[in-house]
Design a protein around this nucleic acid. Structure first.
Lengths: 112, 112
DNA sequence: CCGTATCCAGAGTGATACTG
DNA sequence: CAGTATCACTCTGGATACGG
């Protein structure tokens, strides 16, 4: 699926950047506005600091999120979507709309 | 992220059903119309029979795809989207639209 | 508060070879 | 043609403990 010159379609490009189950969930939270590390961690029930750090760094490297650290004590770090990240809103909304129309039983059968 | 009574938002529900990098790509191919196993495998460059079988079975179990086997020699099996699967079109289109707007350099830096 | 370091488990996937 | 079986690898992600 990878290892080709340049991904043909936009769908594949989306998938490369939004890799893993947490990626989309993190973006969703940030669509409501900038958040601090701990706020993000609290909202994303079940995510580990390890994973959150990893995903946030990847997003930052890919230009979807900006990281702003304030030299205070205690430190304060705020994550915010870039324009590129903001543009994911349409995709997330389409996902959400579809997901809400899915019968509950289907979700139940798959690990949750 | 999982192990809660019932997923709160539609986004999470989408992610549960569309798990793994190939899931979305398979659906995208089927949006163009029904396809046979081998046709699907050829269009999805790099996918193994193993993986394709797995994903297809999962889709079938979740009611996103129907599987029709014709008792012929050689056998012919056709996969087709259900209405639920068809409804993913909007989501895929949003993804594609976003992905096409992503600068090439970002894609290059991540394994491809 | 905001991470990082390390170790480890599990899922998804690929390669290969084989079957009805 | 349409899978299945087996093995092994990679990568995400959790747990825990520690550092700035």
């Amino acid at each position: 699926m990878n290892n080709r010159e340049t991904p043909c379609c936009g769908v594949a490009r989306f998938l490369i950047l939004m890799d893993g189950p947490w990626a989309t969930l993190i973006i969703r939270e940030l669509l409501h506005g900038p958040l601090r590390f701990t706020e993000l961690k609290n909202k994303l029930d079940g995510i580990s600091a390890h994973t959150l750090t990893h995903r946030l760094k990847q997003f930052e490297a890919n230009g979807l999120v900006t990281r702003t650290a304030y030299a205070e004590t205690p430190p304060r770090v705020v994550y915010e979507l870039t324009t590129l990240g903001e543009n994911l809103r349409d995709v997330l909304e389409a996902m959400g709309k579809w997901g809400e129309a899915v019968p509950d039983q289907l979700i139940q059968r798959n690990k949750l």
